[in-house]
């Protein structure tokens, strides 16, 4: 397992996760100006909602690292290990972020953890249906598109506040969809690229 963790860059994922959390605490509530189609709110997007994109990219890269072909023909349940890595990372960040939000340290903390889960799901999905090395293009494009379009709908989950339940559901759905694309014990048609 130690070698599996090293092969999948678990240490780097952990470091980036800790750095992201620290940045969310320190500068998370600052907003970056961005034009908005809705027009009403020129304030922009809180940095806390953007930073998880980078953590999700590093996590996705960790998932894609290792020996994909050898792992796909492994005796051990390599796909389940990858699912575990993603879920554990999201769970740790959610626990920490929930603590931050409940303690009132950072109101966007839980939204940041939600975005980490959602972005990771979108990246895994994008990598499976398009190409692995372009995995993070989908969450990046989605974040900017939603930030520009604005709105309070469930599909605008990347820019919604921590309290939005429908946004949490949408992000978790994205995560579930992404996890479903992880290498199955025998590869399906979708993941043959």
């Amino acid at each position: 397992m130690r070698l599996w963790l090293r092969a999948h860059r678990a240490a780097r994922v952990s470091v980036v996760l800790v750095v992201t959390m620290a940045l969310v605490v320190v500068v998370g509530d600052r907003t970056v100006p961005l034009p908005n189609l809705a027009g009403a709110d020129p304030a922009g997007v809180p940095i806390a909602l953007v930073l998880p994109l980078l953590a999700a990219a590093v996590l996705t890269h960790g998932v894609q690292a290792g020996l994909p072909d050898v792992e796909a023909t492994a005796v051990r349940p390599a796909g389940a290990y990858l699912t575990g890595l993603v879920i554990a990372t999201c769970a740790v960040s959610a626990s920490a972020a929930l603590g931050l939000t409940v303690a009132g340290v950072e109101s966007h903390g839980f939204a940041a953890a939600r975005n980490l889960a959602g972005f990771t799901g979108l990246a895994l999905l994008g990598g499976a249906v398009w190409r692995h090395d372009a995995a993070s293009v989908l969450p990046s494009a989605y974040l900017f598109a939603v930030a520009l379009a604005g709105g309070d709908s469930w599909w605008a989950w990347p820019v919604d506040p921590s309290s939005a339940v429908s946004s949490l559901a949408a992000a978790l759905t994205a995560l579930a969809a992404g996890l479903a694309t992880l290498p199955s014990p025998v590869r399906s048609r979708l993941s043959r690229r």
Partner: peptide, 27 residues
């Protein structure tokens, strides 16, 4: 046992560790 057409080195691992990792994956 299967050796794919493209053998990838795992950055950060030694030669022995990579082979050991493949063995571990094989149960």
């Amino acid at each position: 046992g299967w050796m794919p057409q493209c053998v990838r080195p795992l950055p950060g691992l030694t030669v022995r560790e990579q082979v050991g990792y493949a063995g571990w994956l094989k149960g």
